[in-house]
Amino acid sequence: MSGEAIVAEDLWKSYYKGTFLNRRLAVQALKGLSFRVMKGEVYGLLGPNGAGKTTTVKIISTLMEPDKGAASVAGYDVVREYKEARRHIGVMLSVERGFFWKLTGRENLKYFGMLYGLSGGELEERITWALETVGLLELGGDEKYFEDMSLGMKARLGLARVLIKDPEVMILDEPTLGLDPHSARHIRRLLREEAGKGKTVLVTTHNMFEAEILCDRIGIIRGGRIIAEGTPGELKSLVSDSTPITVVLRAEDARAVEELYGRLVGDGVKGEYERVEPGKWKLTILAPRGSEDDVLADLYSTSRSMGLRVLEARVREPSLEDVFIALTGEEGS
């Protein structure tokens, strides 16, 4: 079908451990995963750790064959026509590794540029352009050894390697993981600009904020399957029957927070909690619309009886994070 840059159809993949004689299933990473990305679209695969995001990216990048199912990039089958597919993709897998430590940014790009078929003046021009585009020239990253670069600079160099190929499809696995806000924002802006030029971008993340502002469409992946798909707006409408409540409370004992949380969820109430700083916890609760007052009353009375202090309780509009919690979070966990 024209207009589709990436097609993944019923992908299955299992990992095994042990040797030939004692080979046993370790994990079933993908269980019939399907999605399609249109040309010029930024598509985000959003999911928790171990959901199957990296496996999907590797299959789409021709670096792994699925056990079952089919995938194509730029019209080329990633198994049978992998050499052709590779000519049309630019891949960034890890921010921290993937370059020669004792080569400068420019030297590394020269090596990979040559491997990808560029040479002479064209290679030099593309390297300078890519370094400038990702902001490494102004940071001096072109003359710095990879080992001396900050994580943000390494990520920018990884993106520069993708850009020098001028690929139709850009595939990036958690490109902003661990980056400072400035570098992360820079990379997101670049990806949007590239999409504006007609490039297709497939990006994995578990950063809700990033998915919401970067992606045209998002596929929420869990347990090796896409469990929901749509624009950020469409996904948010999935929780239109719920009201998110954010609660900040002070508690020294994690078990007390766990107990409070356990009492609040259930009967259609979902959520999650996390420690934001020592002694301070954040609970996100999705209450059925109309039951907000009951949940809040329950929250205050239970926390008072347990000796916990509620610092803030706020009813707000649904966000992508709430969708994620509603779809991937277990009730009462």
Partner: peptide, 17 residues
Amino acid sequence: LGTLPYVMLVPRRFPVY
């Protein structure tokens, strides 16, 4: 180095590379 995926992405057969 973590460069194995990137050299395998060269659009040639890996044995050739």
